[in-house]
Design a protein around this nucleic acid. Sequence first.
DNA 1: TTATTCTGTTAAAATTCGTTAAACGGACGG
DNA 2: CCGTCCGTTTAACGAATTTTAACAGAATAA
Lengths: 228, 228
Amino acid sequence: MNKVSILLAEDDTNLGQLLKSYLSAKEYDTILAIDGAEAMKIFKKEKFSLCLLDVMMPEMDGFTLAREIRTIDPHIPIIFLTAKNLKEDVIEGFKTGADDYLTKPFSMEELIYRIEAILRRSTKRAADVPAAEYTIGKYNFDVTRQLLTYRDQSRKLTTKESELLELLCRHRNEVLERNLALKSIWIDDNYFNARSMDVYITKLRKYLSKDENVEILNIHGKGYKLLC
Amino acid sequence: MNKVSILLAEDDTNLGQLLKSYLSAKEYDTILAIDGAEAMKIFKKEKFSLCLLDVMMPEMDGFTLAREIRTIDPHIPIIFLTAKNLKEDVIEGFKTGADDYLTKPFSMEELIYRIEAILRRSTKRAADVPAAEYTIGKYNFDVTRQLLTYRDQSRKLTTKESELLELLCRHRNEVLERNLALKSIWIDDNYFNARSMDVYITKLRKYLSKDENVEILNIHGKGYKLLC
DNA sequence: TTATTCTGTTAAAATTCGTTAAACGGACGG
DNA sequence: CCGTCCGTTTAACGAATTTTAACAGAATAA
């Protein structure tokens, strides 16, 4: 999946920084603009998946900014943030084509979920989009078909093998933490599931042994690192 | 554009009637159910573009209802209505895949705008409204006639074959969970029905074997995924 | 060093799934 | 009413997948 990039326009630097670091922690590439004019400048230069706009800003208010943004990209999802809870304001927001409207104070969790709800809709059919594939050294890994191919030999992976290899690929050349993998694939990171994961690491190592430049490295006490 | 149809589940008859007449005035075909169980019954019989669900209802609460609805149509937009403003509740709502979440009291205008914001996003997608026909690789599947066609050869499917294939199509390229399929088609997800479903999967695999790009993948311990 | 925790590997056990065929039961025509 | 057909369920067995167990070896901290 492509990385999600967010344009955040917020003149309150405290809140702005807070939001930016929170969103970045959630793996959203976030760029912060401190007023409407700057936001517009940045928007013209870069590509974004979604806009998060404060309504009350110096230079250019959120609604005006939204309209200008929409002249460039008429379909980009826009969420307004505002301190006011005025009915007229909310209506005005949706008239400019808002996809959502959040009144301060809101919880970070709710923001994240609303962002995800919108992205789910707008990037939908991502499932029809070309199958996710990884190149692992001389191997090719087709995630959706769970197929690991070396030259002309294909091996059909089981569900667990495939899930684990995909996680390793997503973190390739960096550490995939044990707990993360366990919680993500096995849901629960207890002793037995950890043993089970060991077994799968052994299997994957065997499958990947034909290319000596590919290696699943153990980082003691941390996790594994797929080198390729 | 097709007419927009809304399933409204609201146990407060006053509010329910008010919403229904307001939405109908805005040219949305609206059907009102007075509890979760009735809503589910109606949903199974008719096609809807969007669901508007009260959270607190007798018989079946909104979240449970939403989950059941999503087992049948995993992509239909859902908006929750609630009197509570609890953070936990909002989060729970989005976790079940809500597209929006409105806290009473809200203005009719805001509701309309939120509905339109969601429809704007979701009708961009091609096969959104429950299709009567699916294209599965080189196959064509006519749901109402229960006819599976490959080039010039048509095969009349039995009821169960057809129901299962339709569910797979609605979830195509994503996992259709075993117990969800069982509860939706066989009503009860006991051991024997599960065996029965296996038999039908085998049959469908045979029927679909002429296009090698089409595949019913088993996700061990979870369910099946129709790749096409 | 020594004890302890963590990892690697193999095999057996448990669970889940795939396939074929036979049994069941309702609908239909005679 | 009786047999036949058709869709569905049940049964039986084998295969695939995942988990558990057992033991050996490595890495680390005290």
